[in-house]
Amino acid sequence: MNKRVLALSTTLILLSGCATNQGLYDWGHYQETLFIVYHDPALKEEALNNYLEFVETGGTPQHPIAPGLFAEAGTFMLEQGKVGEAIKYYKMEYEAWPESQPMLGMLIKNLEARQ
């Protein structure tokens, strides 16, 4: 019986090692970036630059950038007073996620009117 349990355990461990869970979306280092932005001001600029680089180049057709990440980048830009950059990222979110279009359409329209 012990050999049977050992063989079954070994098989399960080997099979679970082969399985990967990539997830549906590419989140990059979103959680780490948020932590740094809110808790470590000395590293905020570098973390934001890395985040923006990920948003610009990340994702694949199989694992697109997660919903809200473009809009988050836009909000980071808006906080820095870069309205044009913010609009660019909000438009990227608008195009990528149709569900966000009612809210982002109004936001984009208001920001463009302010410029």
Rank of each mutant, 00 (worst) to 15 (best):
Q62M: 10
L15G: 07
A47P: 06
K44W: 01
E32T: 01
K109D: 13
T75A: 10
P41I: 07
L43N: 14
G59H: 03
C18Q: 08
V55W: 00
A73E: 01
L104N: 08
M103P: 08
H39T: 15
E112P: 07
E112Y: 09
H63E: 04
E46A: 13
I108N: 03
G74I: 05
H63G: 02
N21G: 07
T11Q: 06
N50L: 09
G58T: 01
A66G: 09
A73L: 01
Y90E: 05
K44P: 03
G68F: 03
G58N: 05
L107M: 15
F76H: 00
I36P: 02
D26N: 12
W97V: 13
Y51V: 04
M77V: 05
G59A: 07
N110K: 11
L34F: 11
L69T: 04
G81T: 05
A66E: 01
Y51A: 04
G17S: 09
Y90T: 07
E79S: 10
F70Y: 15
N49H: 11
L34A: 12
G68M: 05
V55E: 00
K3D: 15
P98G: 07
T75V: 11
T11M: 10
P41T: 06
P61H: 01
P64G: 06
Y30G: 02
K88H: 15
M103H: 14
Q62K: 14
E95M: 14
K82E: 12
Y38F: 15
T75H: 10
T33C: 05
R4A: 11
A47V: 08
V37A: 02
K82V: 04
R114K: 15
